[in-house]
Design a protein around this nucleic acid. Structure first.
Lengths: 308, 308
DNA sequence: AACACGCGTTGCGTTTTGGGCAACGCGGTT
DNA sequence: AACCGCGTTGCCCAAAACGCAACGCGTGTT
């Protein structure tokens, strides 16, 4: 789109915080970018960026302008997707910001399923926690947020909220593996390996452990779930993850050889919510909109926690 | 705004139905307009207009495109108004589509009051009945619709609905003028002059007259309220108008010398609604938004029908 | 204190884009 | 058959955008 190059440049400037780096990002010279910015500011009648010694920063007017600019860019993309859809082809691009827990099983499966029907649709999946996801929604950086949140009222539109139980993950031949449902106290008879604070499952667990006498420090912490999985696969340690991020018996993925998950009794852990968030009043492109429909259905069916 | 000339041209083409007339409207040659349209269609990858022998017409893709284009134009205007407002000045333009009944008293007073505070805000007021107003809202031709509607559920957002009683209008020295409230039967003891079917007051009256034995044909009909007013001022005939369009004792306007209005008993006429309509999900420019606030307040206070 | 660095900005020559003019092809009308 | 009004296109010129190089100016370093 020809008439949007200025907007793309300004968006790049706002993101990078400098004209030169924005120029690099759009493969142009700084002078070209600077001139387009200046022209736009002249048309608007106000400066949008405050010039500092080490770059530029949006001012009050700029905050409103960038909102309009990103809105316009998003709307344009939506128009393209609408027309493409009308012409019979489903193509487009979907940006997703989501919790780590969705990376190993849920999203790969969902996206694979979607792309099986619509191969022309491309995806971009990025891990972020919920406050960052809210920002990204607002700035049109992601179309869909899929995050775990156990308490706060978010400032985006919650399109869907499904409760999430906690699951314990252990080696396939672990003594506890013969139970279907575990009490937290049982798990804590073994060493525990935990994700860092800030991860979804950890949050849930910490709340559950509050005041419990059997609580003890983890023998190992890590920000890598790959590590935690490998660790419990080869020892008698136990780690935790929210349900949707735990290996599921029904759909064993290649990477979970040697590990298995068991649900924690709901008496011990009150589940948080997995939220599907959208930007308020935003009309999504067709591809994103249909993808939301798909995962809404999936989450309502398969992933609804089994009532015990 | 430089990057919107193409959009303005395409909007003009869509409205006028021809490239040449659109060119005239934006003071350019047909070739220039045609090229911009062609460029846009190339960028989009689809034709937007179906070429006919006597002009062009939007096709399916075009319907979606024109929606986006008008949305973008409106959003741009809104950004300008937001930034102007932030800079302390209130300027801008408000387009209003409204029933005839608001023209003689209500809107002039409201706009005058608003412009007394914000002289830089300009207005455009256009008479239209409610279905046309709904279209105009949808096509971003008006920001605010202020129409009388007694029944149907409108497809725009009803921001405010105030009930409207019917009033009889007669000469100042008419025998009935000594009553405060009139029964319909009393009025029909005199000749009646009516607006054409389709006008707000006429609709209300027709419903009230349904099945009444004293009903009789009007001695004169007209689409001009100026004529009707002049007629009743010089004869003993009576005409009707909804409350807000009738001369008000509290604020006598220069044009209503010789005429006076009296409310009709609510037992005879169940009032319709005066609706303040906005386009759904549309963010209004500052000036329009504040004007809506003002008339909302005014309608809630002054024009709420006095409870008899 | 002098220096280098990275930033936004600007002057100038070049390239690309856009506009006006006139003419063409085409359907419907007279 | 001639005509009219429509969208469209080739050609030429004007205007806008771009790249390059250089400048001024703060900041942090040596």
């Amino acid at each position: 789109m020809k008439h949007l190059v200025t907007f793309r440049m300004i968006d790049a400037i706002a993101r990078t915080g400098s004209i030169r780096s924005a120029a690099e990002q759009v493969n142009q010279t700084p002078s070209a970018v600077q001139r387009r910015l200046q022209n736009y500011e002249d048309e608007l009648g106000y400066e949008i960026f405050q010039r500092t010694s080490k770059g530029v920063r949006l001012n009050a007017a700029g905050e409103m302008a960038i909102q309009h600019i990103r809105q316009t860019l998003a709307d344009t993309e939506r128009l393209n997707s609408l027309i493409a859809d009308l012409a019979g082809v489903r193509r487009g691009h979907v940006n997703i910001g989501c919790s780590q827990a969705l990376m190993p099983y849920f999203l790969p499966a969902q996206i694979a399923r979607y792309q099986a029907r619509y191969p022309e649709v491309t995806f971009n999946v990025q891990v972020m926690e919920h406050s960052r996801a809210a920002e990204a929604l607002e700035a049109f950086q992601v179309d869909i947020a899929l995050v775990f949140d156990e308490k706060t009222v978010p400032d985006y539109e919650v399109h869907l909220a499904v409760p999430q139980r906690l699951a314990a993950i252990m080696a396939r031949d672990h003594p506890l593996a013969r139970h279907k449902i575990l009490r937290l106290r049982q798990c804590y008879e073994y060493p525990v390996a935990l994700a860092l604070r800030g991860f979804s499952g950890r949050l849930l667990l910490e709340r559950a452990l509050h005041g419990k006498t059997f609580r003890k420090p983890p023998i190992v912490q890590s920000d890598s779930f790959e590590y935690l999985m490998a660790h419990v696969a080869t020892t008698d340690a136990i780690t935790f993850q929210i349900q949707i991020g735990a290996p599921d018996a029904s759909q064993s993925a290649p990477q979970d050889r040697g590990i298995i998950s068991r649900e924690i009794d709901t008496r011990d852990v009150t589940g948080g919510m997995l939220l599907l968030g959208l930007k308020r009043n935003r009309a999504l492109p067709v591809a994103a909109s249909r993808f939301v429909e798909q995962i809404t259905l999936s989450l309502s069916d398969e992933y609804r926690p089994s009532s015990d």
